[in-house]
Simulated scan of single mutants.
Amino acid sequence: MQTHRAQGKQMMGMGTMQIAAATAMGYGASRLMSEGMEFDTTMSRVQALTRLDKNDPMLAELRANAKALGASTWADPTQVAQGQAFYAMAGFKPEDIVKSMAGTLDLARAGDIDIARAADIGSNILSAFGLDASEMDRVGDILVGTFTRTNTNMEMLGDTMRYVAPIAKELGVSLEETSAMAGVLGNVGIQGTQAGTAMRAMLSRLAAGPNMARKELKALRINTSDKEGNMKDPVTILTEVLEKTSKMGNAKRLGILKNIAGMEAASAFASLLDKGNLDDLKNLIAELRNNKGESQKLAKTMADNLSGDIQELNSAWSDFKIAIFEVNSKGLRKTMQWLTKIMNSIGSFAKENPEIVRNLSYVAGGVMGITSALG
């Protein structure tokens, strides 16, 4: 009798260990597959937002783009896919999304912001200035070149551009000139939406201001347009205004500047007309026109440490887990679909035969009671 009890305890112990091992293996498998499932879900969202058929080669290219960047950069494939989804929401074509993503990752890392926000800022600027998606690297270089040389950051520049970019594009003011003005204004504390609002008003009034502005400019013998009727570049106009007003009394000069730029932009206009600030503006524009690759270089510098190494390792590990998931995905989906059909059949049977199900429940309850009583 004692031998039988000992054998029973041994069997129970082995059973418990097997259950624990199976549970651990199931949990590990679930963890291994979960990242692939998340990536797959995000790519389904990208597919829905881009309105692509599941067999469309462009969807396969988007997926390959997310995996390639996820395996070789600081971001994991799911994060890249989330950035793709944001561009899709902004109305970008699939091929344009692919062109934009590498520059977006550099911008996000260099600007210390998440990928979705980098995509938001980048897409707004590309659209507002009418730039091709392939110029995302240029956008990143200009923004990074600005906030690393002035008292601004990515969020501030993004807010500024949201207000001034459409007007700047309409008047032929380049992204380099616009960003440089935002940076110089940032040095004197005029930042973000305040800078954007002031620059928008100033450029609008210099191009086609009210009678008061035109009267003051005429009195100063300053023509803000060229022979073709296009607005001159901002630096040329600012230089002329500075030359014509530098010897005036401060009260008279401020009154003229306020009449030209308007009340809300007067302080920004006056700041840009400070000789030192105007020199800084000229130098910054020149630097931004010759800083190709700065965003990528800064992103690499920021990742050149143990934390960056770990982050890249995690991205590579994520890519590996996604590859494992993709190998097993079709089989798992078929299994889940088969189980769903079985459960639906059982559910239908239960609804159609309530008496049989009730009796089976009684039998199961009785068996459980007997099992509990016998141990």
Rank of each mutant, 00 (worst) to 15 (best):
L278I: 00
D279G: 02
D280E: 08
D280K: 02
D280G: 06
L281A: 06
N283W: 12
N283F: 09
I285H: 14
I285W: 15
I285E: 13
I285T: 04
A286T: 06
A286W: 01
L288T: 06
L288F: 09
R289L: 10
N290C: 10
N291V: 01
N291W: 08
N291C: 01
K292V: 12
K292I: 10
K292W: 07
K292R: 09
E294S: 07
S295K: 04
Q296C: 05
L298A: 09
L298P: 14
A299D: 08
K300V: 05
K300A: 15
T301M: 12
T301H: 09
M302E: 13
M302G: 12
D304K: 04
N305L: 00
L306K: 07
L306I: 03
G308E: 10
G308Q: 10
D309N: 04
L313S: 09
L313W: 10
N314Q: 07
S315E: 05
S315M: 02
W317Q: 01
S318V: 01
F320M: 07
K321S: 10
I322R: 00
I322P: 10
A323I: 01
A323V: 00
F325A: 00
F325P: 02
F325V: 00
E326I: 09
V327D: 14
N328T: 05
N328E: 12
K330M: 14
L332Y: 07
L332V: 08
R333T: 13
R333F: 12
R333V: 11
T335V: 15
T335F: 11
Q337L: 12
W338F: 11
W338V: 02
T340A: 09
T340Y: 11
T340L: 12
I342D: 14
M343W: 09
N344T: 06
N344H: 02
S345E: 12
I346M: 15
I346W: 13
G347H: 03
S348W: 07
F349W: 15
A350E: 14
A350Q: 15
A350C: 08
K351G: 08
E352D: 13
E352P: 06
P354G: 00
P354Q: 05
P354T: 01
E355G: 03
I356N: 04
V357D: 05
R358K: 13
R358P: 03
R358A: 07
N359I: 14
N359V: 13
L360W: 04
L360G: 02
L360F: 05
S361P: 06
Y362I: 15
V363A: 10
G365N: 13
G365C: 10
G365E: 13
V367K: 02
M368K: 01
M368R: 08
M368H: 02
